[in-house]
Amino acid sequence: MMSFFKSLWFKCTVVLLAIAVVAGGLLAVLNNVLAVSDKERTTRAIKAIYGTEMAHEIIREYDKNLFAETNDIKYQKYENEYGEITNVYKITNETENCVDYLFKSTGINGYKGGTITLWVKLSVDYNQNYKITSIVMESFDKQTLMSKLDANYYEGFYKDIANEMQNYFTADEKDTSNTLNVATNATKSSRAGANAVNCVIKYVRDGETL
């Protein structure tokens, strides 16, 4: 029995396990301390779009537990065939004389079924003209060639959609006549990005709370 505890493989296992447990404990503590909350990520996204922090009114903020408790639609997630929207914020932009809506939208159907999450800024002026004015990448999953989705790609979305918001963006390489085509060399990833924006358009068209 003693020889078992003195054997080499036992020692190896114990040492490795000990290191793993200590490292795991350390990381668990640090993760709690250093975790970036959703709220902070939202502030970061606003900062990336506006340059400064802006006061924002919460219209939708997905929270599973709060929704179960209060049954308030505010905490519900919005879904459609293009993807899902978890957060919507309203920001009154005095300088440009319009109301901005900030959507955190996740587009589906990317490379290998992966997703792309974008912050989409939709500006609405007082004539009820809708226009996408800024897009910031939040995260992506299973996408490749993300460097192909450069500033040029996002420019493709900044078109005047006017007050009807009828058209959806497409990402089809062969279709060149369509002005709403945003295909890049990374076709599938650009499709997921286009879906994220389409999801916002559908959200507005469906007359969801704004």
Partner: peptide, 14 residues
């Protein structure tokens, strides 16, 4: 403390 046989996994863990 680290046995010679498992030094690489131990280093990688650290």
């Amino acid at each position: 403390v680290i046995p010679n046989q498992v030094r690489i996994p131990a280093f990688v863990l650290i």
